[in-house]
Nucleic acid binder design. Structure first.
Length: 310
DNA sequence: CGGAGTAAAAGGCACTT
DNA sequence: AAGTGACTTTTACTCCG
């Protein structure tokens, strides 16, 4: 799996609750501190229907529905240019006129590129909206994704790649920026290229546009997984504690946040007698059993967690 | 079946030659 | 630009209670 969890900004400073760790939790409408995991401020915000984004019926939405992509790009390949050094009747043009013609030609070429980019962006907008809707993401993601896509398009990154994949990558990037824990797979399932394509385009975007990408806090995965498995909020709380502790010990750098969250939940559920199988947790988190095992073993060992006798 | 463990594959990143 | 190494997760097993 793509290993972009690298933790460059290892801000492991143990401040009380510095402002930069306070983060808005989209799914729950709360401000939480990612260091302590506590709710900083309870703000009842109506996030509309989006709050159901992470429920089990996700599965049922996996089907490929939505408007089919149209291949009817206007002007596809058939373009008019102001050409040559002869006029309509075939006479050679004199120098001045020729200069004028070449100026127009350049202008037209520029304009053509500009409008073709516009058209491309417009189509991408449809695709992005479609993805955001199918993933039940907040509408505001569309704007973020569009910003990213626009920059990519203007840099000419879309040329030669599928618009679909680039749009999907923009959506994923937007989620990352906003700290929404959507996986590349979830987005990849909705397009033809699949996860691999999305991942490739995403990396390209990040590299070429110099976007500094915040790593997704594993704690953000916790509430999602917990709600899928219908575990108690005690488990959620305890799992967050474990993750905070793990981060302090530098166990989180370079690891899949979803895997970490899954392992923490597994441990927490075990401790609190709300046992779930590794398999259940793994699939809910979108990782493998083995990953859960590895992470969980590491957590138990390095954090000296004593598990109740089974 | 759930859990534990493992070897081998595969992916992606930071290096070098 | 291909090669290498030190990572990761996944796949596909085996073994145990």
């Amino acid at each position: 799996m793509e290993n972009n969890y690298s933790n460059n900004q290892t801000g492991e400073s143990s401040g009380k609750c510095p402002e930069e760790y306070i983060v808005f939790d989209e799914e729950r409408g709360e401000y939480i501190c990612t260091l302590t995991g506590e709710v900083v401020e309870d703000m009842v915000i109506d996030t509309g229907p989006e709050w159901r984004a992470y429920t089990p019926e996700e599965k049922t939405r996996r089907s490929r529905v939505g408007s089919p992509l149209s291949h009817t790009l206007p002007d596809y390949g058939v373009l008019t240019t102001i050409s040559g050094y002869r006029d309509a009747s075939g006479k050679k043009l004199e120098a001045r006129v020729r200069l004028e013609a070449s100026r127009l030609r350049r202008l037209q070429a520029k304009l053509r590129v500009a409008t073709s980019i516009e058209r491309n962006i417009e189509q991408a907008s449809r695709e992005i909206s479609r993805l955001v809707e199918m993933l039940n993401l907040p509408k505001s993601i569309i704007d973020t994704a569009m910003m990213i896509y626009r920059q990519a398009a203007e840099k000419g990154l879309v040329r030669g790649r599928s618009l679909e994949s680039m749009a999907a990558a923009a959506v994923y990037a937007a989620c990352r920026i906003r700290g929404i824990p959507k996986s590349i797979d979830e987005i990849g399932e909705l397009i033809r290229g699949g996860r691999k394509e999305v991942a490739r385009c995403y990396r390209l975007i990040v590299r070429e546009l110099d976007i500094r990408m915040p790593i997704v806090d594993p704690i953000r995965h916790v509430s999602r997984i917990v709600s899928i498995l219908k575990l108690s909020s005690l488990v959620e709380k305890r799992a967050s504690e474990i993750l905070i502790q793990a981060r302090k010990m530098g166990l989180t750098a370079g690891k899949d946040p979803a895997g970490l969250a899954a392992a923490a939940i597994y441990v927490a559920a075990l401790e609190l007698g709300e046992r779930k199988t590794q398999k259940e947790i793994a699939t809910a988190a979108g990782v493998t059993e083995v990953t859960v095992r590895n992470r969980y073993k590491e957590l138990v060992q390095k954090l000296n967690i004593k598990l109740p006798a089974q």
